[in-house]
Computed example of a mutant assay.
Amino acid sequence: MESRAPLALAVVIVNYRTPDLVVDCLESLVPQLPSRAGVVVVDNASGDHSIETLQAWIDGTDAATAEKVHLLASPANGGFSAGNNLGIKRLRAKFYLLLNSDTIVRPGAISLLMDRIQRDTKIAAVGPRLEYLDGRPQVSRFRRRGVTSEFIRGAQIQLISHILRRKNTPIELDEPEQQIDWVSFACVLLRAEVIKKIGLMDEQFFMYFEDIEYCLRIQKAGYTIEQALGARVVHLRGGTSSVKESAKNKKRIPAYFYRSRTRYFMLLGGKKRLLIANLAWYFGRAIRMLKCLRGKYPGPRIPGEWHDIWIDFLAPQTSTTFSPRKSSRVVDQ
C-alpha cells in the first residue's frame, strides 16, 4: 500500500500555559488554511487546564476543523525547539509553519507566505511582518549576532548603534531591502526538504537563539531567508516568555536566555568566541558607565547581566561548530 501523500502545509503551535491565546490564534488561523493542511498544538507539559481547554475548543468546532487540528501532549517541557520538533514529526507535509501561541494571523497572511516560498526553491524560510495589535510594526528581520553586536548591546548608546548600524542585530524598519540572516520564529514558514537536509531544531536551546542558529544552518546549506512584508501577523509578545518584558522593566532575565546565548557563541567558535563576545560586551558597558558618570543614562540596565553572561561558560558542550547535522541532534524527551 502506498503511503499517504504529504499535506500541503502543517502548522505547529507550542503551548505552555497559554490555552486562551492558542484558541485566539487558532480562530484566526484555521479559516485561512488550504484544503490539505493540518495543525498540531503541542502542549509542553503545562500541568494546568491547557489540554482540557484546547480539547473542549476542538470538540466544539465543526467536523472539518476538528479533523485538521491535532492536540499532542508532551511528557516533559523540553523548551521551544523540543516542542516544535515534536509537532514537525507528528505530520508529514511539504511546508511547516511554526507559529507562537501569542500570535493572531491577519487575513491573507498564510497564502502570501506560501506564495513567497514557492516562488524560488532556494528560499528555505519566510517570515511575515510582525506587528502589534494596533498595527504598529515590530522589528522581525535580523543580522547575525556577533562580537560587534555584543559591544553595541553592552553600550546601549544611540550614537554607537548608529555608527555601527551595519553590525547591529536588528534590521530597522526604515532600512532598505538587504540580506536577512534570520527572522523571528514567532512565525516562520519552512521548506520540508530543507528540514530533512539540515535536521530538526537544536533542543539544547531551551528558548531563544534557536532561531538564529537554525537560520545560520539554512544559509550554510546554500538556502536563503526571506520576509513577506505583505503577510501580517500580530505578535502580542510576552505571552510565551518573560524575557522581553523583564528587559523592558529592568528586571533580571531568566537564566535560560543566557544558557542559550552561551551555546550560540560556543557553536560559532567555542569558548574563545564566547570569551571575546563577553569582553566586547564589557567594553561597551564600560563606555556606558562613563556616560552615566556624566549624568546621562543611555538605556535600561538589566540587573545581574554582567555576571549572567558567563552562565555555562565552563559547562561541557556536545557540539562546538555549526553543522547541518551535529547541532540538530534530537534529544529524547
Rank of each mutant, 00 (worst) to 15 (best):
N15M: 03
V30L: 08
V40G: 05
S46Y: 07
I51M: 12
E52D: 14
T53G: 02
T53M: 12
Q55V: 01
G60V: 06
T61P: 00
E67V: 10
H70D: 08
A76V: 11
N77S: 09
F80A: 07
S81H: 02
S81P: 14
S81N: 06
N84W: 06
G87I: 01
K94V: 03
Y96W: 13
N100R: 07
I104P: 03
R106N: 09
R106Q: 15
I110D: 05
L113W: 00
A124L: 10
A125V: 15
Y132P: 00
R141K: 15
R145M: 12
T148Q: 04
R153C: 07
I157Q: 05
L159V: 10
I160H: 05
R166G: 05
P170Y: 06
E175P: 09
S184F: 09
L189R: 01
I198R: 05
G199M: 05
Q204W: 07
Y208H: 15
Y208D: 07
I212T: 01
Y214L: 07
G222V: 12
G230Q: 14
G230V: 05
A231R: 04
V233T: 03
V233H: 03
L236S: 10
R237Q: 14
R237H: 01
T240W: 06
E245Q: 14
R259G: 04
Y264K: 07
F265E: 02
L275K: 07
I276P: 01
W281T: 08
W281M: 13
R285M: 11
R285Y: 15
A286I: 11
M289Y: 11
C292S: 08
G295F: 12
G295V: 09
P303R: 04
W306G: 09
H307R: 10
I309N: 07
F313Q: 04
A315F: 02
P324W: 05
S327T: 13
S328A: 15
S328N: 10
V330K: 09
Q333Y: 11
